[in-house]
Each structure stands twice: as structure tokens, then as C-alpha cells.
Design a protein around this nucleic acid. Sequence first.
DNA 1: TGCATGGCGCCGG
DNA 2: ACCGGCGCCATGC
Length: 197
Amino acid sequence: MDCKKDGNLKKCNCTYLKLKEFGKSGIPSAIGTLYYVWPVKTDICETNLDNSIFFLSNSEKSFDFFTNFLANKFPHCPIIDMSSPEIEKELAGYLSGKTRGISLEPVYLYGTDFEKKIWETARKIPYGNVVSYKELAQKAGYPNAFRAAGTALGNNPLMLVVPCHRVIRSNGEIGYFGGGEEVKLMLLDLEQPQQQE
DNA sequence: TGCATGGCGCCGG
DNA sequence: ACCGGCGCCATGC
């Protein structure tokens, strides 16, 4: 439980979270089934986990990887099938274009300091805007680590919540996207409803 | 420890 | 506009 005592948990920042139960679920959407994991129950802890989310992806493969990670690192925490109306409402609002963004608080259960810095910096990109991988790295304080920044985005456990789809290449090319290039284009288009010729 | 691997960027041809 | 090549840097094995 105490991350600092276990070398295998060095990538875990959960020391202050007293988790009791994870909820996992998946809902169909325009960009494929969206799988998510969230905190169902926690002990009294220093952090308010209301409106929090641990994982979100349209990739079943990465979902399996994440739940396996949880089962290994949090053996005392049952992972139950339970949906979150709050989370699904946020996702529906965003994907329908009714809300400009998603009001869910990311909780990173793994990730290096560099990755978290990149993810948090990406999260500040306003709805409808795009930046290059280079600009993202600069904003995060690593002006020359634009390539590593791309790799870090590839490890983003919270699609949409951490809007890595708003990061494109300096030359204007769309760049890679773990959730699928067509999905990246779809999301960028969703955020530009007012554009017309 | 060292080396290969990436969601990249930039310069030449 | 389209490459190949090289540099860049955090990670993983």
C-alpha cells in the first residue's frame, strides 16, 4: 500500500489515496466503446475523489492492460462492474458537442514525473485549440523533449480528459493517435463546429 | 550501463 | 511537395 516501501510501485502516486473499490464499465459511442475506471469507494482521505476518473479509452486492449495493472498493484481493491452516471453524462455532453470539454478530475495511478507533467500541460490546451508536440514540450518545461513528449502522450491513460488529440505535428500533419487517426480527426472536427467555407 | 525505440523537428536535395 | 538523414530526449530492456 505504501508506494515508497515497494520499488515496484515507484510509478504509483497513490500514497495519499485510501482506495477501497474500483468501478469499471464501458459504453458505446461515436468513437467506439468507451471503457472507463473510476473510484467507487474510498476511506476518508486527504483527497476529494468526487468527479474523479482513473482511466478512459476506446481501446479494449489498453483497458485490459489497465485493469490487469490495477489487480496487481491494488490487490486489496476489488474491481467491480459498475457504471458512473456522472462520468457518462460528461462524456455524452462532450461527444454531442453540447459542452466544451469534460469536467472530470484525472487521478494518475501511474506515470513518471515527466509523463504527468506532459499530461497536465496537455490538459491546459483550450477546447478547439491545437498545439504542436514541440510547443507542448516547451510549455511543460522541456523545450527539446518534443519527441519524448509524443511518447508520453502515447501513455496517456485518460483519453479526452487529457486532450492529446489537440496535439499535432509542427508541419501541420495530424500525427499519431492511439485511439485511431480517424478518431483524432473526428474529435478535432467536433471541436470546430463553427467552421465553414 | 548501454543501446534501441518512439504519437517529432529541421535541413538539404 | 516529398524524401532521407540526423538530432533530440525520456524510457525500457
